[in-house]
Nucleic acid binder design. Structure first.
Lengths: 225, 225
DNA sequence: CGACGGCTTGATCCGAGTCAATCCTGGTGG
DNA sequence: CCACCAGGATTGACTCGGATCAAGCCGTCG
């Protein structure tokens, strides 16, 4: 059975359909996609593996990671329900993908999508658009990693998660402090301390460590400028 | 007249054709592209402007930048001869583009390329492929910005430039120390100090500040691991 | 209940940033 | 041809934000 938090992220078929952008690519996933479940921390694919499949998150959450030889880790992105990932036109995965919590994905053969794209320019455009959105996020993230302070990174992260989960001011984080740290280029200690600071300054409330209330969006937005 | 360094970067029509990947997109640029020259530090387009045109570098070099309100700057990428840039399927430039030195680009209307892509799946694939390559570079760069030390960043930068300019072990940098710093998430002082360190350890030679000899690639590659 | 994993907090350290002089060096004009 | 100048680059002294090292704390699950 799926965990409580997963249900809250709307994994019922009806909600799922509501989450996917209307378009032929979503149809293609619904028609051709094979559902598959990955347990917490299970690897979905590894860095350097051939990119034979494309994935779409149904429920749960996925992290995309890259490792340095000595174990330093960078998380390039989190993928939430409705996001397609693993799309690499060059045929090789440049990051590894892992399930953050128990996660269900739809899987489609890359060649199937590419054949479709060859005949249907709408599909081709949607595939391109997914890569373009990922690029845009990566570019925003470069500014964060290159130039922002710890407070600014945390504020940006909370606002991003609130926006993407469309859950108003209450953010339910699927990932651990270590994941957040590796996404933001910080350490767990700094993530924890900074969250405490933001709580003390009444910008956020920490109901539990994974459940965060955005109390003062104006303050967070100022930090995010 | 173009500067000496520009000639060295092979801007003659014959060399230019040799630089562009064989493919119909390169043809499209050659057939439909309007050449345009931008002087050093001239803005090619601004952040947030509508993305009505797509560009390809003929000679010179371009930087893609994003600013924070207080002036902190991140350079997302450098574009060298043969690179297409300004491609944003969402219709708005998320970064500004500026000429690093006197630069010639070919300009094509975005709608023209997209119309072409609608009928020619080969063109569509090439456009997607450009975005995918940019994404791949951005992802590698996130690891650098999030997790690498100053020495590792500089080593990675020098190796990247040597590879992309295909100039063997002698790298002729078109950009200033400030540009390098804003690309690597460092300060000019740290860039300068780190280059001096690498010179002292015999990994590189600094003929002039813009002309760098890679003396010990093994050492640089170790730093880049 | 007890143990373990994830999180927080505290003390200290250090790599890179900041501030402040110089030092080139390439371009200009005499 | 040379002296000068301006802007970029280097170097040095010192600071500081975030990392590291080291305890504890808390909540969950067997």
């Amino acid at each position: 059975m799926l965990a409580r938090s997963t249900e809250q992220r709307n994994s019922s078929p009806a909600m799922w359909r509501a989450l996917t952008a209307p378009g032929s690519l979503a149809n293609a996933f619904e028609l051709m996609g094979a559902p598959m479940k990955f347990c917490r921390n299970r690897e979905i694919y590894g860095e350097g593996e051939p990119a034979d499949y494309v994935y779409m998150v149904v429920s749960g959450a996925v992290r995309i990671t890259k490792l340095l030889s000595d174990g330093r880790r960078q998380i390039g992105a989190f993928h939430l329900p409705g996001d397609a990932f693993g799309l690499d036109p060059r045929g090789e995965h440049r990051f590894a993908a892992e399930a953050i919590e128990d996660t269900v994905v739809l899987i489609v053969k890359r060649t199937a999508l590419e054949n479709l794209a060859e005949r249907d320019s709408q599909i081709a455009r949607e595939l391109w658009s997914i890569t373009a959105r990922d690029l845009q996020r990566a570019q925003d993230h470069m500014l964060l990693l290159g130039r922002k302070t710890a407070q600014e990174r945390i504020a940006a992260f909370l606002l991003e998660m609130a926006t993407r989960a469309r859950s108003g001011n209450l953010v339910e984080l699927p990932m651990s402090r270590q994941d957040i740290a590796d996404y933001l280029g910080l350490t767990i200690e700094t993530v924890s301390r900074t969250l405490t600071q933001l709580e003390n300054s009444a910008a956020i409330g920490l109901a539990t460590s994974r459940r965060i209330q955005l109390r003062d969006r104006a303050a967070l937005n100022t930090l995010n400028a």
